[in-house]
Design a binder for these strands. Structure first.
Lengths: 219, 219
DNA sequence: CGGCGTCCTCAGCGTGTTCACAGCGCCGAG
DNA sequence: CTCGGCGCTGTGAACACGCTGAGGACGCCG
C-alpha cells in the first residue's frame, strides 16, 4: 500500500485529490496547514507528498526546506498557482522534486506522481522510527535495536497507532475507536491487556501510562 | 456577509484597509488598541481578524495568546514590520494562522485572507505558557523552567483551567463547576487542598489567593 | 477431530489518587 | 487586642484505576 500525504488548504481541491488518488489505490491523508503538513511529513511514514505552495502558517517552500534540513528525503510534488520561471526555480531550489502549476490536468499529476514514486528517494526510510524502535508498515515488521520482534495483528496495529503519535497521550477510548473499530463492544480493559503484551515484548519503559488520561510512547 | 476585524493603530493604514476590504464586500470594523481589539474579538462574532503586532496597550502576540487561551479559534492574520524568522515563528507560535510583513502587497493580503476564511477556524490547542510554566495538553506534560513536573489528573485539570485565565481571579465555585463537574457533592475545601498540592509542586508564589474571591495565577 | 495461536473477558490485587475532616494560623474588622 | 471567619495542611480512609494470570471462545491448519 502506497501512502500519500496531500498538503492543501483549499478544501474542495484537497477532497477531490483524495478521492481521485484513493480510486487509484493509494492511501491518502490530508493536512490543511503548513505546520500540520510538516508534522505529518516528519512522522507519518509517507511514500510521497503533494504540496501546495500557498498554505496558512508555513509556505510550501519553507516546509520543504525545513524537511530537507532535517534530512527527510520524502519525494515532494509541488503545486502552485504561480507559473513564473522564478517561482518554479524557487520551488525546486527549496528541495521539491517536481513542480506543477495550477490549473493542472489530473492525468499529468498522476503521471508525474508515478514517476516520482518509481524514482523513489535514495535515502528514504519508509518506516516509522521512535528511539531504537522501527516499524515498517509495508513489511509488517518491527525491530527493536535491530532485533526483530514478533507481534500479533492487534499488537502491531496498536504499536502502529502509537508510533504515529510519539510523545502524545492517547486515551483508551481513542485507541478503542481507531485500533479496535468497535469501541462499544470491547471493554477498555482489552487495551490494558495489549499494552501489557507490548511492554513485555518491547521493554517495560517504552510505554508510559498516564493515570486517568491514557498511554504515551516514550520518545 | 463576512465580518472582519482590523486591529491597527496607524490611522491611515487602518482606513485604507477598511476601505479596500469593504470594496471587496466584507463588513469591516476597526479597533485601534490592543485591549479594544481583544474585547472586540471576544464578543464580536467576527469571521477573521487582521492584527498588527505593534499596538498600544497590548501587543498583537499577547492578544492572540490570550484569545487562544480562552479557546477562541478565530482565524488571525498578523501584520508586522519585522521580518526576522524568529518574529514570524513567535507570531505563529502564539497562535496566529498566517503572517504578513509590512510593507505588503494588498493583493497578497487579500489572497491570504481568503485562504484563511476558506479554511475556517482551526481547532488547534497549542501549548499554554505563563511565565516559565508550560502546559502541553496533547502530550499532557507540564514543565517549570524546563524541568518536568509530575501532576495527577486532577492537578493537571486544575492547572489547565487556571492557565487559560492567567491573571484573572477564579472563584472556588467556578473551579468546582469546571474542574470537578460535581460542585454540589464536593466541598470547596477540595479546591484549597489541590491548590496546596500545586503550590508545593510549582512554587509557593505562582498561585495567589485573593481572600474572599478565589485564586489567581501570577503572570 | 485435536492442537495451536490469537483475541478478549474476568476477577483479584496492589497502589496511587481523591477528598473529608479537624486543628491551626493568619488576616481583617471592630 | 480580641474575635470571627477564611484558608492551609497533615492524616487517613475509601475508592478508582490499571496490571496481571487464568481461561474460554473462535478460527485455522494438519
Amino acid at each position: 500500500m502506497v501512502r500519500l500525504l496531500v498538503v492543501e488548504d483549499e478544501v474542495r481541491l484537497a477532497a477531490a485529490l483524495q478521492r481521485g488518488l484513493q480510486a487509484e489505490g493509494f492511501a491518502v491523508d490530508v493536512a490543511a496547514t503548513g505546520p500540520a503538513g510538516l508534522d505529518a511529513a516528519r512522522h507519518g511514514g509517507y511514500d510521497a507528498m503533494i504540496l501546495d505552495v500557498m498554505l496558512p502558517g508555513l509556505s510550501g517552500y519553507e516546509l520543504v526546506r525545513r524537511l530537507r534540513a532535517e534530512e527527510h528525503w520524502l519525494p515532494v510534488l509541488m503545486l502552485s498557482a504561480k507559473d513564473g520561471e522564478y517561482d518554479q526555480a524557487d520551488g525546486l531550489d527549496c528541495g521539491a522534486d517536481d513542480y506543477l502549476t495550477k490549473p493542472f490536468s489530473y492525468v499529468v499529476l498522476l503521471a508525474r506522481l508515478r514517476a516520482l514514486l518509481r524514482r523513489g528517494a535514495p535515502q528514504r526510510p519508509a518506516v516509522l522510527t521512535v528511539g531504537d524502535l522501527r516499524l515498517d508498515p509495508a513489511r509488517r515488521r518491527v525491530t527493536r535495536a535491530d532485533a526483530e520482534v514478533a507481534l500479533t495483528a492487534r499488537e502491531f496495529a496498536l504499536l502502529d497507532y502509537l508510533m504515529r503519535r510519539p510523545g502524545q497521550v492517547v486515551s483508551k477510548i481513542e485507541l478503542l475507536d481507531h485500533v479496535w473499530d468497535a469501541s462499544l463492544e470491547t471493554a477498555p480493559n482489552a487495551v490494558e491487556v495489549y499494552v501489557g503484551y507490548l511492554r513485555r515484548k518491547l521493554g517495560r519503559d517504552r510505554l508510559e501510562t498516564v493515570r486517568g488520561a491514557g498511554y504515551r510512547l516514550a520518545t
